[in-house]
């Protein structure tokens, strides 16, 4: 379980996160939705250690992760799949995948990578090819696979739907949902595409201007037209 308590982040005079608290239980997907500039990505980057928080904390299964380096946070079992193209085009598919678990003993690494190749057969087929030869959806699979290489208990997904065709988005998000249930992962999903995200999530969290404005079940939030009009603009 990931527990975020009163997390605040400022960039100069701008407060990007203002006392954000939320809970991400294991075995399900928690979706954070909100308009551009709501602070969703900042939340993810802070949790992953790329941005230093001003105050507040985040605990993964009771261990404090805030204030640690990204490299250490990965080792505690929390992996961020960042926004956009987070695979390294110059490396092969296999190299990209292995990156995620280089710090683990090689036997464990090989076992996990075999598991991931089973899950994503297309990656196994293309393991020797450069990752920029993959399609957008395949690349997102690779990014998820790399995050899984560290044998995480918590996955942070930042806008996985960005630039993907609707059909692919649905596939990817269903895969995420399946992963959360089968591997008992705490999944925090950030999306602008609220409808699709809420379809796979158990809990929905709406953020606006750096604060959490509403927490509820995914169904509740998906059904609330007022909320959608007020914060999501669609």
């Amino acid at each position: 379980m990931l527990e975020v308590k009163q997390l605040s982040v400022s960039f100069g005079a701008v407060r990007a996160l203002d006392a954000v608290s939320l809970i991400v239980p294991r075995g399900e997907v928690t979706a954070v939705i909100g308009a551009n500039g709501a602070g969703k990505s900042t939340l993810m980057r802070t949790l992953a250690g790329l941005v230093k928080p001003e105050s507040g904390s985040a605990e993964l299964d009771g261990a404090v992760v805030t204030g640690r380096s990204p490299e250490d946070i990965v080792r505690t079992g929390m992996a961020l799949i960042p926004e956009g193209r987070s695979t390294i085009p110059e490396l092969t598919v296999e190299e990209n995948l292995h990156l995620g678990g280089l710090w683990r003993p090689s036997a464990e690494r090989k076992a996990t990578s075999a598991e991931i190749y089973d899950m994503f057969p297309v990656l196994a087929e293309r393991r020797r090819m450069r990752s920029d030869t993959l399609s957008g959806g395949e690349r997102q699979q690779l990014a998820i696979g790399r995050a899984l290489m560290c044998d995480p208990t918590c996955l942070l997904l930042d806008e996985p739907s960005l630039g993907l065709a609707p059909l692919i988005v649905t596939q990817i998000l269903q895969l995420v949902n399946q992963l959360a249930r089968e591997k008992n992962l705490a999944v925090l999903l950030v999306e602008q595409n609220a409808v699709t995200a809420l379809r796979v999530a158990t809990t929905g969290i709406i953020m606006n201007l750096g604060t959490v404005v509403r927490v509820g079940t995914a169904e509740e939030i998906a059904a609330d037209d007022e909320l959608r009009d007020a914060y999501l603009g669609s």
């Binding site: 790329l50 990965v74 960042p82 490396l91 292995h98």
Partner: peptide
Amino acid sequence: LSMRASAFNPEVAKLSG
């Protein structure tokens, strides 16, 4: 591999541990 990844994309490398 770690060196190459660090050179090509430091952020992704960090996020990979």
